[in-house]
Structures are given as C-alpha cells and as structure tokens.
Design a protein around this nucleic acid. Structure first.
Lengths: 165, 165
DNA sequence: CCGCATCCCTTGGGATACTG
DNA sequence: CAGTATCCCAAGGGATGCGG
C-alpha cells in the first residue's frame, strides 16, 4: 500500500511559531510535515516533468514515455501513481483492447503547476548569479587547496633539511 | 571539488518551446538544466530548514546543529557548503580561538526564501484536499485488491470443483 | 498497450572517530 | 568549536522479463 510518509527527523524550535507571521511547524522535517511530503513528491526525478507536460494537454501513458527521454516504465508508473494518489492527476482507463489510459491534470494539479512556475521563474532570473557564485567558489576553493598543498610541501622540505641524515 | 551537476536524462520536446510563453527547455531534467539543479538543492533533506532558520537571523554552526533536530555534523556541513557555493548563504570565519563561524542568508538566498514560501502557502491551503485524495485512493485500492483476491479465490474454487479428483 | 515483479547498482545520508 | 575522514546501511531508480 505504501503511504507517502517518509521517516525523517525534525527540528527544535525555541521561539514561538508565527511570531513573524510564519508558521515554522510546517517547515518541520518530521514525517508528519505536509511541506516535506509535497516537496518530496515534486522534487523526485520525474514528477515536475510529468506535471509540466500534462498541463499542456491530456496524454497517454506511452506518449509520456516517449516524451520524457530517459524515464523507465517502472518510474513513470510510480510517478503517475503518486500524483494520482495525491489528487494531482486523474487517470482514465478506457476498457478497449489494446488498453488505453489517459492522464490529465486535475484542478489541484493545475494550481500546483502555477505555484511551481514561480520557482522556475526565480531560477531563470537568478541562474546567472548562481553560476557566477559557483565559479567564484570553485576558484577560491582551488586556490586554497593549492595554497595548502604548497604549505605542506614547505613543511616537509623543512623537516627533511632539519633531519641531519 | 564536486560540482552540483547530477547526471540525469532529459526529455524530448516535439513542440516549439515558449509557444504558450513557457520555456520548456528549463524543465529539462538533463544535467545542464538549471531548474533541476536548484530543485535538487532545495529539495534535499536539510537545505530548506537551514534557509528558513537563517532567514530569521544570522546563526553559528553549533546553533544550527542544535536547532535542527536529527541533522548530523557531516550533513549540516555539506548542506551549508552547497548553499554557500550557490551564493545563497554567506560564511564568515572569525579568527578567534575557539573558532567561530557565522552563517547568514545572502540577498539571493532571501529572494529564494520568499519564492519558496509560496510553495509552503500552497501546501497549507491544499493539504486537506490532498489528505482526502489520499484517503480516497487508499480506500479504493484496498477495495480493488480485496475484489481481486475474492475473484482469484473463486477461480481456484471452480478449478478444484471441475477437476474430477 | 499498460503495468507489475525481480534484480542490482548507485547515491544520500547517519554514526563514529579524529584534527586544528 | 568547527569541521574532515571513514564506514556502513537504506532508499532511489534503471534494466529486464512476465502477465492481463
């Protein structure tokens, strides 16, 4: 049956929740945290893609399989089941032969898609900044490591000179 | 050095991107997809919590360690390094003894936090709906399975009766 | 055509112990 | 105090093959 509750720990909050109008109970990482559950759902490897594609139009299983490059049948099935269970996607089985199954976004799924778009937009707007930050960081890290290695070599050299054979 | 690019496949798009004003290239799951990278970052087990806590005020390493229940030193370090590399968090080392390291959200990190809040709000508003959908689904699934088992038992019984000893 | 079951490998992440 | 290094386990996810 497999429910969506993953066992993950939480956080201690020593200040009253909501003092700044923000409920930190929902940021909790414990298994009973809704945000964690939704995030785990949309953060998995394929859900986003599926939602994005279904938002454009209703699709069949095989269509999704073809459109999403690299997904396995197993994972597409699992992803769709999860989304269906959460009420984000509606699954319609046509009792024909060969069988035909249609998937479409529910109203709930559509609102989620809208919300996610905000994140996508944020990413588009700031990806350059992030790329720069990463380049900076990597450069700095490389420099520091080189420095450390140089220092280590110096120390070793010194030790060798001090050891009177 | 470990960069943040995970090797994951993408998706084939047979329609022109942006025809509905939405760039599907950014929904790509391939390694060079920015959305995927950011999502992987914020979706990991601790980043969200760290960002949420740092948004309130600047914190030291140990403070975070204590506030986030269940996190290990190793994971907290990793999480902070990732966030720092992406320019979301600023790390300040005070050359005192014992050492003291402060972490604070950058401007970029603050905007991300704002964006994420939208997702949290969505979750709060729709969690009841999701819970209902799940209960429905589980009920239905259980019923279907029971039905299947009953049918199987019937078939077996029939076969037993037809087999003339 | 759609999906489940099995096997197997890779990755995320926890526990513990050690350094500056 | 603030990490780093090592080990180890469990979950995620791919490949393949069977069943309705």
């Amino acid at each position: 049956m497999e429910d969506g509750t993953s066992t993950s720990p939480g956080y201690r909050c020593d200040t009253a929740p909501g003092q700044d109008g923000f409920d930190y109970a929902h940021w909790d990482a414990r298994e009973d945290c809704e945000v964690r559950q939704i995030l785990d759902r949309i953060a998995d490897k394929w859900s986003l893609l599926v939602i994005a594609l279904l938002e454009r139009r209703c699709l069949r299983f095989t269509e999704l399989l073809r459109m999403i490059d690299g997904v396995s049948q197993r994972m597409l099935t699992r992803t769709l089941r999860h989304l269906e269970r959460d009420g984000l996607v509606r699954r319609t089985v046509h009792p024909t032969v060969p069988p035909r199954v249609d998937y479409e976004l529910t109203g709930l799924g559509a609102t989620l898609h809208t919300t996610i778009k905000a994140l996508v937009t944020w990413t588009e707007e700031h990806q350059a900044q992030i790329a720069r930050a990463r380049a900076d960081y990597d450069l700095r890290a490389a420099a520091e490591q080189a420095e450390a290695e140089r220092a280590a070599a110096d120390r070793e050299e010194l030790a060798r000179l001090l050891r009177p054979r």
